[in-house]
Design a protein around this nucleic acid. Structure first.
Length: 723
DNA sequence: GCGTGGGAGACATGT
DNA sequence: TCTCCCACGC
């Protein structure tokens, strides 16, 4: 237990004028435009410290929403020394984690009960598949992924099954699947990621008493990565902040890279409309990168802007950005590894200083292969690497069943793992029984364990015997789950299902077994962090882990996707696979999607502090032949003067001369001014009545022919000037 | 009635 | 490379 070590004045003196303005802004809505590396986290942290130490706000009344659990943990750690013991009363977490907690506390307002589980992607797919079978829709005509996307999109827009559009046959079909999917989730006492938000918002909207209670609790709300919030997340923040109006949001539209997951840039417009008195503060000094890196980044997003984004650094020009052409992904990996080894040998860097970023997870394979071949350690960021393993999922399914035996997904997953003679036939028997009793399979089994004689008619012979065996295991599991710590429970499971022997038998090689068993040990280590009674917390944390939460191993190079790199920084960054088809990805076809890919590149570049390497493979082995690749179009927008390496490959001399005359890629016109006439695809003709500059962008107020005035962000809104 | 093995297809990003 | 599905054998 420590007391604050710094005074408030000490803290404020550590800030630049823009940061200080944001941190000390009077209560009320605040919008901070934070360029990359501009000290955003520091501003959020110090803002909280300022609220507590400067304005006397109780930490109990503060809610800070971060993008990942890791960010939440770091924020709390940073606030510890500033606020002392009081930091523990803060609420810091992701939207999803907050909603899960909210929904457990307010369980009387929804039908899932207090002990609902969170459906992971696999559960969702499984239930969706079941739903499609139930309503007799073929997954050939309606691919699972597209149905899933449609339902998720609807949920993120706040649309329930009964509000789902029905104007086309396709929509009517998806509406039926959606309805059935929700029924199956409810029957499993499971919520998917979107449901957490959907239900939280619904409860707050429909119950003034609940809303009042929570709004009174959270008098100050701070939201990080505001550009990547979806509509429901914004609604949640708005509902909680409506009363006290102390909503402090931080974001950077140039780092908006999650629209495919429902993130909605219009939240900015919604914010401006709902909180017209909001103060806007840009953070323009970059403390992370050298000028060359920053110029490369600014060049890449220049075409997205009407006027240059302002970002500067005092770190000096630094090394030029290295552009490297290689034959193929193998040479690419070797280039990365050889460069990184050379720098480490010369003592210019340590292995932990490097990050290698790519567009798709599949690209990590060749890299890993070469790292292994060179015997260089590395670390891959991503939940699937660990939480996607069969052994981890199996064991977690047992723990989930202990917590909630109604969890059908988990039951189906482990009822025959290890094999205990329960196949399709026996399973169908059990599920029919459950359907007839209007109960979950797990509950039927518990009943069977308690009163075997009650099932004399429905079950017999072999099926009865094997189900009885599993039922008594389940009964014991549920009983122990209530008292044991997650680790003790996990060990009980391992012991009782002889999982080690099973894994040994399943593994084809002893190396494979060693690897898989080490995953089990890792899971034990994670479970060990939770006390008796901590099963709920453990399962919830595991369900909501983000890729970044799997960061670690600071002594080795980090391999990660560009998406996972958001919010991180590394002294030396390699971005590989900079070719058409990968970046922008071939599936990104519309202008908006390509713009998002461009921002993704920008995010990657701005992670680098000292050095940046951009690597272009010229071919790859695909579908049984070598496929020639074209350099990413985004490379064309790099300022030639910040580049070194294979620059002549990218810019033949003629182009260089032309570029030098022109200096840089053109920006996307126009710059908006008051009085300009514009057209919007939805609202029609309008007039710009107000323009506010915001971090290289413009916030426009536009009055349309319907007489309404609406706010827009110039770079994001689909506006067209009209002569 | 259940387990296993082989073949086919898939791979965007992720809470 | 991994996963899913189907067919076949015990």
């Amino acid at each position: 237990m420590h007391e604050p070590s710094k005074s408030l004045d000490d803290l404020l003196n550590e800030l630049n004028p823009q940061q200080r303005e944001a941190v000390t802004a009077p209560p009320g809505p605040v919008l901070v435009w934070a360029g990359p590396g501009s000290g955003k986290t520091r501003v959020l942290t110090y803002r909280i410290a300022y609220l507590v130490l400067g304005l006397g706000v109780s930490p109990w009344n503060i809610l800070a929403v971060t993008f990942t659990n890791k960010a939440a943990r770091e924020m709390k750690e940073r606030l510890g020394p500033l606020l002392g013991i009081r930091a523990e009363n803060l609420t810091v977490g992701t939207f999803h984690a907050f909603c899960a907690r909210f929904l457990r506390l307010e369980h009387t307002y929804h039908p899932f009960g207090q002990r609902f589980v969170i459906a992971d992607t696999e559960d969702q797919r499984r239930l969706l598949k079941q739903a499609m079978e139930d309503v007799e829709v073929s997954d050939v005509i309606y691919p699972l992924a597209s149905v899933h996307a449609a339902i998720s999109r609807a949920k993120n827009e706040g649309i329930w099954p009964k509000g789902f559009p029905t104007s086309s046959p396709r929509q009517r079909t998806i509406a039926r699947i959606y309805r059935r999917y929700q029924e199956l989730l409810l029957a499993s006492k499971a919520m998917d990621f979107d449901d957490l938000l959907l239900w939280a918002v619904r409860i707050l909207e429909e119950n003034p008493g609940v809303r009042e209670k929570w709004a009174e609790r959270y008098q100050h709300i701070l939201v990080d990565e505001f550009q990547d919030t979806n509509m429901l997340q914004y609604q949640l923040a708005r509902l909680l902040a409506q009363k006290h109006r102390n909503l402090f949001v931080v974001g950077d539209m140039d780092q908006a890279i999650y629209s495919w997951r429902g993130a909605d840039y219009r939240n900015l417009e919604r914010f401006q409309k709902d909180f017209p008195e909001a103060r806007t503060i840009p953070l323009e000094e970059n403390y992370r990168s050298t000028q060359h890196i920053l110029d490369a980044a600014l060049g890449v997003i220049r075409p997205l802007h009407r006027r240059p984004k302002r970002l500067f650094t005092r770190k000096g020009r630094g090394a030029k950005v290295t552009l490297k052409y290689v034959n193929n992904p193998y040479d690419e990996a070797d280039f990365v590894i050889e460069t990184l080894l050379a720098l480490t040998r010369r003592g210019e860097a340590r292995l932990g200083d490097f990050a290698i970023m790519y567009r798709t997870n599949a690209q990590s394979r060749v890299l890993e292969e070469r790292f292994l071949a060179h015997r260089v350690p590395y670390h891959v960021v991503g939940t699937q690497r660990f939480y996607g393993r069969k052994e981890v999922k199996d064991l977690l399914a047992y723990l989930r069943l202990a917590y909630n035996p109604e969890d059908e997904s988990s039951l189906l997953r482990v009822i025959n793992v290890p094999p205990r003679g329960i196949g399709m036939k026996t399973l169908a028997l059990l599920r029919n029984l459950a359907r007839r009793m209007g109960s979950a399979s797990g509950l039927v089994l518990l009943e069977l364990a308690r009163k075997p004689e009650a099932f004399r008619d429905g079950l017999s012979g072999r099926s009865r015997r094997v189900l009885m065996q599993f039922a008594s295991l389940l009964a014991e599991l549920v009983e122990l789950g209530a008292t044991l710590s997650p680790l003790a429970l996990l060990d009980w499971v391992l012991e009782n299902i002889a999982y080690r022997a099973y894994l040994e038998k399943e593994s084809r090689t002893s190396e494979e077994f060693t690897q898989r068993w080490s995953n089990v040990e890792e899971l034990r280590r994670l479970a060990g962090d939770y006390p008796a009674g901590g099963l709920e917390a453990f399962l919830e944390d595991v369900a909501l882990v983000s890729d970044q939460d799997t960061l670690g191993d600071e002594g080795a190079p980090t391999l990660l996707t560009l998406h996972a790199a958001k919010g991180l920084e590394f002294p030396i960054v390699f971005i590989v696979g900079l070719v058409e088809g990968l970046l922008p990805h071939s599936r990104s076809t519309t202008q908006e999607q390509v713009d998002e890919e461009r921002r993704l590149f920008y995010v990657g570049i701005t992670r680098a502090k000292e050095r940046l390497y951009l690597v272009v493979p010229e071919s790859r082995w695909a579908f049984g032949e070598w496929e020639p690749l074209k350099p990413s179009r985004f490379l064309q927008d790099l300022p030639v003067e910040v580049l070194t390496g294979d620059v002549d490959r990218l810019f033949p001399q003629a182009v260089v001369r032309r570029r030098q005359r022109r200096k840089a890629a053109p920006m996307r016109p126009p710059v908006y001014r008051k009085g300009m006439r514009v057209r919007h695809p939805r609202w029609g003709l309008g007039t710009v009545v107000d323009v506010e500059d915001a971090g290289g962008d413009q916030i426009l107020m536009i009055t349309f022919t319907d007489g309404r005035t609406r706010p827009f962000l110039a770079s994001m809104a689909p506006l067209e000037p009209v002569d």
